[in-house]
Simulated scan of single mutants.
Amino acid sequence: MALTDADVQKQIKHMMAFIEQEASEKVEEIDAKAEEEFNIEKGRLVQTQRVKIMEYYEKKEKQIEQHKKIQMSNLTNQARLKVLKVRDDLITDLLSEARQRLAETAKDPERYAKLLEGLLLQGFFQLLEPKVTVRCRKQDVETVQAAVNNTIPVYKEAVKSTVAVRIDQDRFLPSDICGGVEVYNDNGKIKVSNTLESRLELIAQQMMPEIRVSLFGANPNRKFTD
């Protein structure tokens, strides 16, 4: 039985509807797949960028922390240097005041004469030479000569030997020092410096740890005291 035109048109419409349905379903499938892949790729990109941002800020945070530590270290060192400078200035002022007091001591004739005797006797004992030369300030020559005369018997009694003492009249100690003497052996190669300045310097070196503790307290970071 032959198909009529109406039957043919009906079959064509049916086939077209079927094709359209399949095409629509395929499009939906493709859209769904594309959306899924898009979301996956978007998530991957977002995660990648999030990691990069976190790494960037972690690096910046470490740099800032390191910079802060360096600044704190610099500030601490600067503060420590300032403290040390103030302490050194204070000790310098203390020694300067001690020097001024020594100069006042030399202005007291009786006290200065006794001091010279002790300085001379110490020089004689250190050298233990039969002949010595004494150098002093020009203004002290008479006082030193009297001190020598008083000291020789004491030295002779102590060591059972005498000493010939010559006061150098050609070269004097600077007049601006506080006082005291220098004692030399006969050939001048060995010297005992017993000026008031040299004695002050020696005592200051020996007592500096005690001076620092008295002024600033004990150093908690110092392990040894000798």
Rank of each mutant, 00 (worst) to 15 (best):
E61K: 04
E61H: 02
E61L: 06
E61Q: 07
K62R: 15
K62W: 14
Q63W: 06
Q63A: 08
Q63P: 01
I64K: 07
I64M: 11
I64E: 13
E65Y: 06
E65R: 07
Q66C: 03
Q66F: 05
H67Y: 06
H67D: 10
K68P: 00
K68F: 13
K69V: 02
K69Y: 06
K69P: 05
K69Q: 09
I70G: 08
I70Q: 12
Q71E: 14
Q71Y: 08
Q71G: 06
Q71S: 12
Q71F: 07
M72H: 04
M72A: 14
M72W: 01
M72T: 11
S73M: 14
S73K: 10
S73D: 15
S73P: 00
N74L: 14
N74W: 00
N74K: 14
N74G: 04
N74P: 09
L75Q: 14
L75K: 13
T76E: 15
T76W: 10
T76H: 13
N77E: 12
N77V: 05
N77T: 11
Q78T: 12
Q78G: 13
Q78W: 09
A79E: 11
R80Q: 06
R80G: 00
R80T: 03
R80D: 03
R80V: 01
L81P: 04
L81C: 01
K82T: 15
K82D: 14
V83W: 01
V83G: 08
V83F: 01
V83K: 12
L84N: 09
L84I: 06
L84D: 14
K85M: 07
K85A: 10
K85C: 02
K85V: 00
K85P: 00
K85F: 07
V86H: 01
V86A: 09
V86L: 15
R87D: 04
D88W: 00
D88Y: 02
D88S: 13
D88M: 05
D88T: 05
D89M: 06
L90C: 08
L90N: 10
L90V: 04
I91V: 15
T92F: 04
T92D: 15
T92Y: 02
T92W: 00
D93H: 12
D93K: 10
D93V: 07
D93F: 10
D93A: 14
D93Y: 10
D93E: 12
D93G: 09
L94N: 07
L94C: 12
L94P: 05
L94K: 05
L94E: 08
L94F: 08
S96M: 10
S96Y: 07
S96D: 15
E97K: 11
A98I: 03
R99K: 12
R99W: 02
R99S: 08
R99Y: 05
Q100N: 11
Q100A: 11
Q100K: 12
Q100V: 07
Q100Y: 11
R101P: 09
L102V: 03
L102D: 05
L102C: 04
L102T: 02
E104R: 01
T105D: 04
T105F: 03
A106E: 15
A106Y: 00
K107D: 08
D108G: 00
P109G: 01
P109F: 00
E110L: 02
R111V: 15
R111W: 01
Y112H: 09
Y112M: 05
Y112E: 12
A113P: 15
L115W: 10
L115D: 13
L116V: 10
L116S: 04
L116N: 08
E117L: 00
E117F: 02
E117R: 03
E117P: 10
E117M: 02
